[in-house]
Simulated scan of single mutants.
Amino acid sequence: MSVVEPPPRAVAARSRLLRAAVEAFATKGFDATTTRDIATGAQMSPAAVYVHFRSKEEVLYELSDAGHRSFLTLIDDADDSAKPPAARLRAVIGALAAHHARDHVWSRVVNYELDSLSVEHREAIGVMRKEVARRVGTIVDAGITSGVFDVDDPQATTTLLLSMGVDVARWYRESGLMTPEQIGEFQADMAARIVGAG
């Protein structure tokens, strides 16, 4: 059975609505944002949202799903299992921190509006969040096993390492003193110190 691709105009319209939703959710919060706000931000009619999405919540879910898939892809791209654990950890934590700075508006929505998702959608995103933690936790475990990390609680340490990157989206601004790349380097250094890798 062949998959029918949506026409390019429909894809472009959905993309405009999603970009507008990110800005609206980041500025006003999910609850205070209306579908009219989203449509206005996309320079479309108020009914346009419902042509492409069943609800405002579905818009948030699409953003959250895409955001968390990008986190997983980022880890895959940054992690080289052939390298020593300290190098792997620095690469992954640095890449995640830089990403949360570069895409701070989208990342803020993706990470801080989870409670606005339906139970079903929250569970689906939860699966991906657990997978992000599992992949970083695997690196922490590898460092402990090889004796190069000094960690008492691997799970709590993994949570701390991930929380540092996520929090970047909350406070980062383009007018700040550090670029996304510098933030990535700084957090990579901090991650190495946290696990006792120097």
Rank of each mutant, 00 (worst) to 15 (best):
V3Q: 08
P7T: 12
A12K: 10
A12W: 12
A13L: 09
R14H: 04
S15K: 12
R19C: 13
A26R: 05
K28I: 01
T34M: 01
T35P: 06
R36A: 15
I38P: 11
I38V: 14
G41Q: 00
Q43K: 06
M44L: 10
P46D: 10
A47M: 03
F53S: 05
K56R: 00
E57C: 01
L60F: 03
L60M: 03
Y61W: 13
E62A: 09
A66Y: 10
A66D: 14
T73S: 11
L74T: 14
A78G: 07
A82T: 08
A82W: 02
K83I: 02
P84N: 13
R88F: 01
R90K: 12
G94W: 03
G94M: 05
A95D: 14
A95N: 11
R108H: 15
V109M: 06
N111H: 14
S116L: 02
V119A: 15
R135S: 03
G137M: 01
T138V: 06
T145C: 03
S146W: 08
V148Q: 08
F149I: 02
V151C: 02
V151R: 01
L160Q: 04
L160H: 07
L161T: 03
L161S: 02
D167M: 14
A169M: 09
R173C: 13
G184S: 02
E185I: 09
A191F: 01
G196K: 07
G198V: 07
